[in-house]
């Protein structure tokens, strides 16, 4: 039960942050990406601001084996830059630029995004359902010449 309550609190902070920072406004996200248009630097402040508490949390996490609630801490990150990371990020970047939405804001804006947001969400969830099949294909080694 404590895990659910704290997950809700963490999600609430995340949702509140996405909301007040303007990151659920697609014009602000596309404005950051549009270097040849009316460039909007807000996203850099959001990302920078978010990394401050997060970096401190990682410093604390390094000294601990388990979380406050006794669950194990995440393992050390992989350093492998494989084609899944690159290809997936290319696809994500294209979609992010096209609509100005990434997964977090698409949930945060659910109460005021209207029909357009629900169409985006339905397509995103479909993509997430298909992804494991594409991942499995990409896991296969590249055939030699």
């Amino acid at each position: 039960m404590a895990r659910l309550i704290f997950a809700f609190v963490a999600g609430g902070l995340f949702g509140a942050g996405l909301f007040v920072s303007g990151m659920t406004d697609t014009t602000k996200v596309q404005g950051w990406l549009d270097v040849f248009g009316n460039w909007d630097p807000t996203l850099a402040f959001v990302m920078g601001g978010a990394m401050i508490p997060m970096a401190l949390a990682w410093l604390v996490a390094q000294r601990r084996r388990s979380s406050v609630l006794g669950t194990p801490m995440p393992p050390k990150p992989s350093t492998e830059i494989d084609r899944k990371l690159v290809l997936g990020s290319v696809m994500f970047g294209m979609g992010w630029g096209l609509a100005g939405l990434c997964p977090g804001p698409s949930i945060a804006a659910i109460s005021y995004g209207g029909a357009g947001l629900f169409i985006f969400l339905a397509a995103m969830l479909t993509g997430m359902a298909i992804a494991p099949f594409l991942r499995a294909r990409l896991d296969k080694p590249v055939p030699a010449e």
Binding site: G12, A44, I52, L56, S66, V68
Partner: peptide, 24 residues
């Protein structure tokens, strides 16, 4: 806007910090 961005960013990072340290 940049102030709201910074405030929102700190909230986002606090959520991430809590999720990591409390829930692991």
């Amino acid at each position: 806007d940049w102030i709201w961005g910074l405030v929102g960013g700190l909230l986002i990072g606090s959520g991430g910090a809590a999720y990591l340290l409390v829930n692991g």
